[in-house]
Computed example of a mutant assay.
Amino acid sequence: MDHKQLNYFLALADTLHFSRASERCYISPPTLSRQIKQLESEIGTALFIRDNRSVSLTPQGKAFVQYAQATLASWRQFKSECQDESQPLSGELSLYCSVTASYSFIYDLFARYRKDFPQVELNLMTGDPAYSISQVQSDLTDVAVAVKPASLAQGIEYQSIGRSRLVFIAPTMQCPLTDMLAKCGEGSLPWAQLPFIVPEQGVLKERIDSFFKRMSIQPQVYAHVSGHEAMVALTSLGFGVAYVPEIVLAQSPFKNQVQQLNLQSEEIDIGLVAKKKRLQDPVINKLFRVAEGIFNS
């Protein structure tokens, strides 16, 4: 087996979906399937249970996750220790972030990093920011962009790269929701009657849940959504009210189809996350130092 096969295995073990895993690995689903079958043949046991509707890990597959993570971590550590400091920095670095973060924060960061260390291969993966820290913890990516949680998981390093206000948004199109809002004066919104678009998980879900608790609201949830960008899209279509980072709204193609509600808001801190022990790798360490120089200057 080779390290690429281990990465393919971990991607499938995380998503349990061949199409999503193949997109993450930049290969086709048939190629991913062949690689997994080859890996299973070499090991001598099935790692996944497949049927027409689902993919799941076998007991042996669950045990192999730990082996694959440990093997790749040891390999990366060994490579970093072999880095010749007299030579230009080289290697690979993978980063996971939301689509919005790739426009707003990561473009400037990667541009500076690539200028300083042109021989490092940069790989960018985009997805729901709610999964950012788990992507790092599972060794599916080296670094991720995440909203800072109330408490960081043990062994995780955090480097702030920016802040954003959270804002309540509603549609501008004429619909029952805008009719309801138009009848209410400022500060007297019928919270218990409003339909909400809320995140499936993550820090933003914790923030909106906290708001509901403070307001003693039993919310009417229209939809649970994966990804902040999709929340803006559903709001623009009149399905509900959402609580989103202002930076997401600023980058959205639907920003002119929604309105901000004039309500008191709070801020979130956005930053890079990586395993602390991985900062011994100069490729990752230099990214954190570049970020610190850009965003703390």
Rank of each mutant, 00 (worst) to 15 (best):
D2N: 15
H3M: 10
D14P: 03
T15I: 01
T15L: 04
R20P: 00
E23Y: 12
E23D: 07
C25E: 05
Y26C: 10
I27A: 04
L32I: 07
S33M: 11
I36K: 00
Q38A: 14
F48Y: 09
I49Y: 04
L57D: 06
P59E: 04
Q60E: 14
A68F: 01
Q69V: 01
A73F: 13
W75H: 12
S80D: 01
D84C: 13
S86A: 02
Q87K: 05
L89Y: 12
E92N: 09
L93S: 02
Y96Q: 06
A101T: 11
F105G: 06
Y107H: 07
Y107K: 07
A111R: 04
Y113P: 08
R114G: 15
V120D: 07
V120S: 04
E121V: 14
T126L: 06
D128Y: 10
S138Q: 14
S138P: 00
S138W: 02
D139S: 14
L140N: 08
T141S: 05
V143K: 08
A144I: 00
A144R: 05
V147W: 09
A153K: 13
E157T: 02
Y158Q: 01
Q159M: 10
R165I: 05
L166Q: 05
L166M: 13
V167Y: 13
F168E: 01
F168L: 10
F168D: 00
I169C: 13
D179K: 07
M180T: 11
Q193V: 04
Q193C: 08
Q193W: 13
L194M: 09
P195C: 14
E200P: 00
E200A: 10
E200Y: 14
I208M: 14
D209L: 15
S210V: 01
Q218S: 05
V221D: 03
V232S: 03
A233P: 02
T235G: 04
S236K: 07
V241Y: 11
A242Q: 03
P245Y: 06
I247R: 11
A250V: 08
Q251H: 02
S252A: 09
S252Q: 00
K255I: 02
N256C: 09
N256Q: 15
N256R: 14
Q257I: 09
Q257T: 15
N262C: 08
L263Y: 06
Q264C: 09
Q264M: 15
E267T: 11
D269A: 14
A274T: 03
K275T: 05
K275E: 08
L279A: 14
I284S: 10
N285M: 13
V290C: 05
A291R: 04
E292F: 10
N296Y: 01
S297K: 10
